[in-house]
Amino acid sequence: MRESNISWTDYTWNPWIGCRKVSAACKFCYMYRTLERNGSSPAHVFKNVSQFNKPLFLK
Protein backbone atom coordinates (compact mmCIF):
# COMPACT_ATOMS: atom_id res chain seq x y z
CA MET A 1 0.00 0.00 0.00
CA ARG A 2 1.10 3.51 -0.54
CA GLU A 3 -0.14 6.91 0.37
CA SER A 4 -2.25 8.43 -2.36
CA ASN A 5 -2.64 11.84 -3.96
CA ILE A 6 -6.23 10.93 -4.86
CA SER A 7 -8.51 13.40 -3.09
CA TRP A 8 -11.10 10.86 -1.90
CA THR A 9 -8.74 8.27 -0.41
CA ASP A 10 -5.67 8.06 1.81
CA TYR A 11 -4.15 4.84 0.44
CA THR A 12 -4.22 2.71 -2.69
CA TRP A 13 -3.75 -1.05 -2.77
CA ASN A 14 -3.63 -3.54 -5.58
CA PRO A 15 -2.87 -7.12 -4.57
CA TRP A 16 -2.94 -8.38 -8.18
CA ILE A 17 -0.62 -7.87 -11.14
CA GLY A 18 -1.85 -8.38 -14.68
CA CYS A 19 -5.26 -8.45 -16.27
CA ARG A 20 -7.26 -10.01 -19.07
CA LYS A 21 -8.85 -7.72 -21.62
CA VAL A 22 -12.60 -8.25 -21.57
CA SER A 23 -14.05 -5.48 -23.74
CA ALA A 24 -13.28 -2.90 -26.40
CA ALA A 25 -12.80 -0.34 -23.60
CA CYS A 26 -9.62 -2.21 -22.64
CA LYS A 27 -7.94 -1.25 -25.93
CA PHE A 28 -6.01 1.68 -24.44
CA CYS A 29 -5.31 0.23 -20.98
CA TYR A 30 -2.37 2.00 -19.29
CA MET A 31 -1.49 -1.09 -17.25
CA TYR A 32 -0.93 -3.16 -20.39
CA ARG A 33 1.36 -0.52 -21.88
CA THR A 34 3.33 -0.16 -18.65
CA LEU A 35 3.91 -3.88 -18.12
CA GLU A 36 4.79 -4.47 -21.78
CA ARG A 37 7.24 -1.56 -21.68
CA ASN A 38 8.91 -3.18 -18.65
CA GLY A 39 9.18 -6.55 -20.41
CA SER A 40 6.38 -8.30 -18.50
CA SER A 41 3.36 -10.11 -19.88
CA PRO A 42 0.26 -8.16 -18.80
CA ALA A 43 -1.98 -11.16 -19.57
CA HIS A 44 -0.20 -13.19 -16.87
CA VAL A 45 -2.35 -12.54 -13.77
CA PHE A 46 -0.89 -13.34 -10.36
CA LYS A 47 -1.12 -12.37 -6.71
CA ASN A 48 1.43 -9.81 -5.54
CA VAL A 49 2.52 -11.76 -2.45
CA SER A 50 4.47 -8.88 -0.88
CA GLN A 51 1.41 -6.60 -1.00
CA PHE A 52 -1.44 -9.01 -0.36
CA ASN A 53 -1.70 -8.69 3.44
CA LYS A 54 -0.68 -5.01 3.75
CA PRO A 55 -4.18 -3.78 4.77
CA LEU A 56 -4.06 -6.02 7.82
CA PHE A 57 -1.21 -3.92 9.20
CA LEU A 58 -2.48 -0.45 8.33
CA LYS A 59 -2.30 1.81 11.34
Rank of each mutant, 00 (worst) to 15 (best):
M1S: 04
M1A: 05
M1I: 02
R2D: 05
R2H: 10
R2P: 05
E3Q: 12
E3K: 12
E3N: 09
E3R: 13
S4I: 03
S4W: 04
S4Y: 00
N5I: 11
N5Y: 14
N5T: 12
I6V: 14
S7L: 15
S7Q: 15
W8C: 06
T9F: 15
Y11C: 00
Y11K: 03
Y11V: 04
Y11P: 00
T12N: 06
T12S: 10
W13Q: 00
N14Q: 08
N14G: 11
N14Y: 10
N14W: 11
N14V: 06
P15Q: 01
P15R: 02
W16S: 13
W16K: 15
I17Y: 01
G18A: 02
G18M: 02
G18H: 00
C19Y: 04
C19S: 09
C19M: 05
R20D: 14
S23D: 11
S23L: 12
S23P: 08
A25T: 14
C26T: 08
K27Q: 11
F28H: 12
F28R: 13
F28P: 03
C29H: 08
C29L: 13
M31W: 09
M31R: 13
Y32L: 12
Y32M: 13
R33W: 15
R33Y: 14
R33G: 13
T34K: 14
T34V: 07
T34G: 06
T34P: 02
T34W: 13
T34Q: 11
L35P: 01
L35Y: 08
L35R: 03
E36R: 08
E36N: 08
R37D: 04
R37V: 05
N38Q: 12
N38H: 14
G39D: 11
G39H: 09
S40F: 11
S40T: 01
S41L: 11
S41G: 05
A43D: 14
A43W: 12
A43K: 15
A43S: 14
H44Q: 12
V45A: 04
V45G: 07
V45M: 08
F46T: 09
K47C: 10
K47E: 12
K47S: 05
N48D: 08
N48Q: 01
N48T: 05
V49S: 02
V49H: 07
S50N: 03
S50F: 06
F52D: 03
F52K: 06
N53L: 07
K54A: 01
K54P: 00
P55N: 02
P55F: 00
L56P: 05
L56N: 03
F57D: 06
F57C: 05
F57P: 04
F57A: 09
L58A: 07
K59M: 01
K59I: 06
